[in-house]
Design a protein around this nucleic acid. Structure first.
Lengths: 337, 337
DNA sequence: CTGTTAGCGCATTCAG
DNA sequence: CTGAATGCGCTAACAG
């Protein structure tokens, strides 16, 4: 709780000199530097991030703008971001939008007003985006998880279409034929891409695409519950469910149970996001595992690089996913397995 | 991205006047005030939080210092804190310590250097605490989840001893007799209190306390895995497990499964924290539900009040828990149930 | 290589 | 009731 002036006085130098040793600004006499460092230690001096931010016109925080930290996926992401931030002596401010465009906009405006060092954003909508506002204000942004229509911004995500197609192909390979899809809100790019992948796999296998079997709802447990209820009440019931995110899956499971359906015999299940509990249910659930922690960490790394060198075009970084096959989708006896 | 000066110029007044209308500083001519507000809107002016913080010697952020955001409990807490922060136009910076005292201390020092408006802290240790540093620096603190030895600080938590005793009493009531306890690190107050509750319930029922049946390990899945492995390999195996947190339980389940133990017939299970998946396993798991979101929200509310009025002694706020009885502990057929 | 000067954007004295 | 002056703590010119 001492200031740079006090340190300067204590060391018998000017504040500028202290500032110079603090910022490793070469050209400081070794002896003086040592004296300054000594004083810093004795006075337990810590530079004020606030004053620095005002002077440098750039604060030492990153904004992490996501829909909901309670979603296990974003918990992992947040941890990845924070671990990286800590290495760069940055703080992370957490912003939950619930995919509400108003809240997203408010947080973006705050980030601009605060002149944050960077924003890591999972945009609620691919079309109505606040990214341009950030660009205009000169605030570096990295998108995570979801893309937007304009592609002049860094992105760290996975290949959603491909991962979804792989999951559905797996279901087809296990003999499921009437595969339904529980999707997310049409505004999110991930929701669209995953459904595209679902369609692609069906088409590829010569299976019909029945619009009745595609139900969109929110990416939350309630959404999964509603969608599953609707799908499983169909006269011609699907024989498998491809669920587009983890929370939705958590909402769908009780519905499946309450109907007394046996998984995978009556109903195959595969879902996105390998949440920690997916292996704990019975039967355990086949999932598309995303490297959530790495997504956060990589987004942070890109942001750090942008701070040092803002040149270079936007980069799309797609990390690998993994289909974790478990009992909920395994219907064939695999010889030798 | 305009400054108070520009607004002042635009409205034809001085910066002081703009500042006054901004801070609702009575005694401003109604006409001028209107003109100023008009200019603010036109210029899309947003005051710089940084400059304000420097001048007011208090920033507009809260530090939320917890062990790991990936723990579902803290995800809920964080959401509660943030929702409350938003109502007060505050930002929340997220700090994960992994219960490492060094990291906790570093984050506390940062909070002090930043002159944050308040700290919400789940202390890694009850004895070696950084709370005194915060108090000395005049930064308001509210403890959540865990207490510390000195009791002159606000706390929002639950009655851990009582909740634990209730859970164990329930197991006893279901006919379990050799109940083991998987506990957390001895430094955490919650770990101690829950074990005390466990002991209390056993004693009360006239059951012996076998030290062999109490295993402490980290509050993470690995901890639960190790502890469960050790306990279930005992010659005289326990007939029930009381597990002291959610992640530990997630780690213990695979161990139970791999040993082929039937729950609850061979082994009863009750755990702390009603994580979202506890109802999705089979059998579903009896839990002690904590009002995590409310804990965060209430801590934030207390912090807000402290900012307005720092007088008044420390308050301990204990919120209610609920034992959610599910199949993992139900062994008796309950007539009429 | 070092000290002095100035100003980041704002809120608060103090005069008027 | 309003404006001018001052300084929060720091860094970046600028002289020396």
């Amino acid at each position: 709780v001492s200031t740079i002036k006090q340190v300067a006085a204590h060391a018998g130098v000017s504040a500028s000199t202290v500032s110079r040793v603090l910022n490793a600004h070469a050209n400081v006499d070794a002896l003086l530097a040592r004296r300054v460092r000594e004083s810093i230690k004795q006075l337990e001096y810590q530079p004020s991030p606030t004053a620095r931010a005002l002077r440098r016109r750039r604060s030492h925080v990153w904004s992490l703008i996501i829909s909901d930290i309670r979603n296990g996926f974003f918990g992992e992401v947040a941890r990845g971001v924070e671990d990286a931030a800590q290495d760069s002596d940055l703080a992370v401010v957490l912003c939950n939008t619930d995919d509400d465009l108003e809240r997203e906009r408010a947080y973006v405006d705050l980030a601009i007003a605060e002149r944050v060092a960077g924003v890591i954003l999972s945009p609620a909508s691919a079309s109505q985006t606040s990214v341009t506002r950030l660009a205009e204000a000169g605030v570096p942004v990295v998108l995570i998880d979801r893309a937007i229509e304009s592609d002049d911004v860094d992105l760290v995500a996975i290949d959603n279409r491909r991962a979804a197609a792989g999951a559905v192909r797996h279901l087809i390979g296990e003999g499921f034929r009437r595969i339904a899809c529980i999707g997310g809100p049409a505004t999110a790019s991930t929701a669209r891409d995953r459904i595209d992948g679902y369609r692609e796999a069906l088409t590829e296998a010569g299976l019909p695409i029945d619009p009745e079997l595609i139900v969109l709802d929110s990416f939350k447990p309630e959404g999964g519950m509603r969608a599953a209820s609707a799908l499983l009440a169909l006269p011609d019931r699907p024989d498998a469910l491809f669920i587009c995110n983890g929370p939705q899956c958590a909402g769908a499971i009780p519905v499946i149970r309450s109907l007394g359906l046996r998984v995978p015999d009556d109903l195959g299940v595969v879902c996105f996001d390998d949440e920690s509990w997916a292996a704990l249910t019975s039967p355990d659930i086949t999932t598309v595992a995303q490297p959530a922690y790495e997504i956060g960490r990589e987004a942070a790394a890109i942001l750090s690089r942008r701070l040092l060198d803002s040149t270079g075009g936007p980069r799309r970084t797609l990390l690998a996913t993994e289909l974790r096959v478990r009992s909920s989708s395994r219907r064939l006896t695999h010889a030798g397995a």
